[in-house]
Each structure stands twice: as C-alpha cells, then as structure tokens.
Design a protein around this nucleic acid. Structure first.
Lengths: 140, 140
DNA sequence: AGATAAATGCAACAATGTTGCACTCATTGT
DNA sequence: ACAATGAGTGCAACATTGTTGCATTTATCT
C-alpha cells in the first residue's frame, strides 16, 4: 500500500527544494496514507520498524513540511498538535471534527461560518479555527 | 476597585456550596475583574502579594470553579488554557477571538455558524469551538 | 471550642515541545 | 566516481503546562 505514497512523498519533497531523506519521505508517506489528522505519537507508531527517528527530528520534519505547505497543523483542546497531509480539501480553510470518545480528529469539507458578522471596531481578521466536537460513528 | 468583585466572588462561591477560602475568592475576583480570558500565569500575577498560592491549588480552584459553571475554559493553539468568568455572554455558546500579535483572548458575543450543515453519517454533534484569529485594536 | 471533611502545599512525575552543538549524509560540481 | 559542503539528524539538556499522592491546614457545623 505504501509504495505509491512513498513515491508521491519523494516527489513532493524534491519539488520543494528539500533534501530527500528517509525521515522526511517516511513521515510524509505516513501522513499521505492517513485520512485523519494524527499526533506526533501516532506518526511514530506508524513509521516502519526500520525507520526509527528521534523525537526532535520528527518535530523538525513536521515543521518543515508545514512550512512548505505539504501538511497542516490542527490544534486541539488536549494541547497536542495533529498533522494532516494537504490534499484537495486542505488548501482552503476548513473545519475539524474531534471525537470526544476516541480523540480522533478528521477534516471536514466546509467551514460552516456565516458571511455577515463583525469583529469589534479596530480589529483585523486573519483566519478562523473551528472545531466541532461530538462522537464519531464508532463511538456512538 | 476589587472590593465589589471580592464580595461577588464570595457570594458566588458560598451559593455553590463550597468553602469560602482566600484562594477561591481571590482567583474568582481576579477573573470577574477581567474582560479577557487569561492564563493561569496571568491570574497568578494579578493576585495580591499577600495571597500567593501554589500552582497546584490554582489549577484545582480553576477546575472547581469551572465545574460549578462560574468560569469557563478556553482552549487555544498555544497549548495553554485560558479562563474567563461566566457573565451574561458565557452561559450560551460563543466564539473567541485571539490576537496573533499579543496573544490576548476575548469572548465574542455570538457564534456565527450556519444552521444547515451536516456531520458525516453516524456522527453525533456535541458542541462547537470557534476561534477567530487576527489582530486586536492595539496590535493593528 | 472540637470534630470533620474539604481545601491546600509540597514533592514528584508526565507529556509535549524546544534549543545548542556535534556529527552524518544527500546533493552538487568537478 | 569522489570530495566538498551545508542541510539534516541525534543526543542531551531544558522549559512549560499540567497532574497525582499524601500529609497538613483550615472553614464550617454542631
């Protein structure tokens, strides 16, 4: 299964002018293979046995990938960043869903925010972060 | 300035069946006096010199106050909880604004979320957390 | 005032994430 | 193919936020 992700990962990294290292390819491949946004822990667990990276390297690779816009970070109420590959849905703003049962986080397609609303006078808008909480299908 | 807050705090705590201790009253008074949602750090700094509490006590008091619905916790992307007294606006769902310049967090009046949107099939909705990011009036 | 349970302080721990520095290795040019 | 180079990595140490267990203190009730 991972061959194609491995290959895409390599391409994406090369195209962005970074060194193609085992760590970067492996991490990006893991994220490409994953539907949900996952934590640094979960990424570690999904990496092949032959590729054990230092925690610091993992953080730095994730930071680099996010900087190149290949992945994005999702903040959550448990003080843990989750990461998700930037596919179709990810270039534009979108909301996230977090299951309060299993802590799974997925990206939703849309950002269901009304058009007409105002910040207090003098405030400037930059972006919106929206997390819907509830129970996922498995936890219902 | 703090006399009235101090007094309100005492009342609120007593009404909720808790022991009226200096720590609880002081912390709630600080939060009542504050417009923004502030961190545990900022609460510590605003406490009078004569009332220095252990970090653990502060956390436990905040947890207790939140459990009694006298304050609410606001999660943020910097992995730090912020706390805000439950006034008028706070009993219902509302959005928060976080300034990317000074990290100030305020509560917005409304939750500008559309009515008609769906979670994936089998998912159950519980609540929404919405944070608008941008620059506050001072940071613009 | 004394009894009692609730609240607090201390020490130790856990998890996530960051920084500095030396070393390795992917890439580039020859 | 190989050497030079700087980007990437690993290690150790640290910072911050928050939690847990247990002994001690204190607000409240009678």
């Amino acid at each position: 299964m991972s061959h194609q992700f491995h290959h895409s990962a390599e391409d994406l990294i090369r195209h962005n002018g970074g060194k193609v290292t085992a760590g970067r390819v492996g991490i990006l491949a893991v994220l490409l293979a994953e539907q949900q946004a996952i934590t640094h822990r979960e990424i570690e667990q999904r990496l092949p046995q032959t590729l054990q990276l230092d925690r610091v390297t993992l953080y730095r690779v994730l930071e680099w990938l996010a900087g190149k816009n290949l992945i994005h970070k999702v903040s959550s109420d448990d003080r843990v960043w989750r990461y998700h590959a930037n596919r179709d849905v990810s270039s534009h703003q979108h909301a996230h869903f977090k299951c309060t049962g299993c802590a799974q986080v997925i990206c939703l397609e849309t950002l269901p925010v009304e058009r007409n609303w105002q910040l207090p006078a003098g405030y400037r808008f930059q972006e919106i972060e929206l997390t819907v909480k509830g129970l996922c299908a498995s936890c219902c």
